[in-house]
Design a protein around this nucleic acid. Structure first.
Length: 302
DNA sequence: AAGGTATTCAACCGCATTAGT
DNA sequence: CACTAATGCGGTTGAATACCT
């Protein structure tokens, strides 16, 4: 039987009663229920069979970006922000590829984050967001501040946990106190032997009990093996000053390197101490100060 | 309190790619 | 190989909300 192409214009869609715009609770329920019973895929048919007056495309988008159970909601953590910055510097606007490395986050969410937060900063600094200058600024200002933020968060969490533990201990002396896992993010080193761990190079260089476990990224196809989860690719080079970070390009496979970063003519391999220091002195020495590079604005809660 | 402006993010659009026939 | 439908992706839009004056 010949397949007849049916392409609906906007007016056609309206004629046949297809809905547009925000989804109602009822539609969401319908979609969730149908997928729970029959699974996802074949979206056009799914839309019809589920009795939804939506295009298959719309159903797919709604499911993938909003309804899917493993969708993580709420603010991006500093770790996630760092990872986005890092991966974007490597892959550019490959949102879905970037999203594959952030479990529970959608390409749409990441794209929105980039456009609203990152590009906004670029605008304020009067730089092209895909320029090398901006990349340098990201590396020398934004990333260290995110790491600082992570450290503060960790410290606060540890303190809170300590208080909780003390309370618990005072209430019930039989409960053993937990060891406090508090590696300093600023002291993170890439550990080639444990690709999913960040080891603390100062507090406990070789004990796994004191290293920060990073959750495994979702399964990724063979051609996307690199980069691994956050933590492997960023680290504080012990030979550099404390605030300067760069990418560990050595772990990227060659295939991926055929796609250059959006702006740089050099690869990440070439990002050196002098680059970082030059960039830093340039930025610090110029009008671009912390007040402009407002991490608190980036680190905002919804 | 009201009106204007800025920001956010869900949803849409169009194009590219993939899979099936 | 050609054609088509389905799917995936990145760019863009616009309604809702937050913020400012």
């Amino acid at each position: 039987m010949p397949i007849v192409a049916k392409r609906f214009s906007r007016s056609n869609e309206e004629e046949i009663g297809l809905r547009r715009g925000p989804w109602t609770l009822e539609e969401d329920t319908q979609l969730i229920h149908y997928i729970a019973c029959h699974g996802e895929g074949r979206w056009n048919m799914l839309a019809k069979c589920a009795g939804l007056k939506r295009t298959g495309k719309s159903c797919r988008l709604r499911w993938l970006n909003y309804l899917k159970p493993d969708i993580k909601r709420g603010n991006l953590t500093p770790q996630e922000q760092l990872l986005i910055l890092e991966l974007h510097s490597k892959w550019g606007n490959r949102w879905s590829k970037i999203a594959q490395h952030l479990p529970g986050r959608t390409d749409n969410e990441i794209k929105n984050y980039w456009r609203t937060r990152v590009q906004k900063q670029a605008r304020q600094l009067n730089i092209e967001s895909n320029s090398k200058r901006f990349l340098d600024a990201v590396r020398c200002f934004w990333m260290p501040r995110l790491l600082q933020k992570m450290e503060q968060t960790t410290t606060a969490a540890t303190a809170a946990a300590a208080v909780d533990t003390a309370i618990m201990n005072s209430q019930n002396s039989t409960v053993p106190s937990m060891p406090s896992p508090s590696p300093s993010p600023n002291k993170m080193l890439h550990n080639p032997n444990h690709p999913t761990e960040i080891s603390s190079c100062v507090t406990s260089p070789n004990t796994s009990s004191n290293s920060m476990k990073i959750s495994q990224p979702p399964e990724i196809s063979e051609d996307q093996k690199s980069p691994p989860a956050f933590g492997n690719t960023f680290y504080n080079n012990p030979f550099l000053n404390d605030n300067c970070y760069y990418l560990d390009s050595g772990i990227y496979d060659l295939e991926d390197m055929t796609q250059p970063p959006m702006s740089a003519t050099r690869t990440n391999d070439d990002f050196t101490l002098s680059d970082c220091q030059m960039a830093e002195s340039h930025w610090v020495g110029n009008e671009v100060a912390d007040t402009l590079w407002n991490i608190d604005e980036l680190w905002q809660f919804r």
